[in-house]
Design a protein around this nucleic acid. Structure first.
Lengths: 107, 107
DNA sequence: CCGGATCCTTGTCGATACTG
DNA sequence: CAGTATCGACAAGGATCCGG
């Protein structure tokens, strides 16, 4: 199978890359901090995505089973390697999508 | 707003990048050729995505209004600039997701 | 309060049948 | 061949509730 297709099956949804972006750029974040990201993910979606990303070994909990409180999430080595992808995407968007919203209005 | 978020709003769905991948790697493709991609997109979804990508100026029709038949789609300049993103994603997947399906089985 | 789980509504996807 | 129409299934979103 095509690696692009495989990658998109794993992280091609609406939220996964945004979560990973937060964790890469800002370092370990708690559940609440991720909820407060400007994109306003809802609680159930965030919990589901986090579990999925953990099962794919892209992120992990910082304090495995400590107090179940104030435990944060961080990217694993494998997840951190997505940084070039995110950078390339951000670079492309900066150069080509500054007029994105005006494009949308024409629809 | 964050450029990553903007980019994902535009092409962060399941199919857009796969279509662009086909058009970048294989060159201009007709509707039927895109339908025959191994990922098996359905007809209505493909039509919707193509219109969306055209409205974003990421792809275009090769023969504007010729015979309405045998007209193909190709990436625009803006769309072609996604190539580094796709390559980065493919590279990452090749290195990290060869065991993706076995990871899924553990769930 | 924090980290979720649950319920319910809404919207989007996707398969198939159908049309010019 | 290049789409459009229809409809069911499922995922996302929002609000609320619960345990520690």
């Amino acid at each position: 199978m095509c690696p692009i297709s495989t990658a998109l099956d794993a992280i091609g949804d609406k939220w996964s890359l945004l979560i990973i972006r937060d964790l890469i750029i800002q370092g370990p974040r708690t559940y609440s901090q991720l909820l407060d990201s400007p994109e306003r993910i809802s609680t159930n979606i965030l919990a589901t995505r986090l579990e999925l990303l953990i099962s794919l070994n892209l992120i992990e909990r910082t304090k495995p089973q400590a107090s179940s409180r104030n435990n944060a999430f961080q990217v694993t080595n494998r997840g951190a390697q997505l940084k070039p992808v995110i950078q390339a995407l951000g670079h492309w968007a900066s150069r080509n999508l500054t007029d994105f919203h005006s494009d949308m209005l024409k629809m």
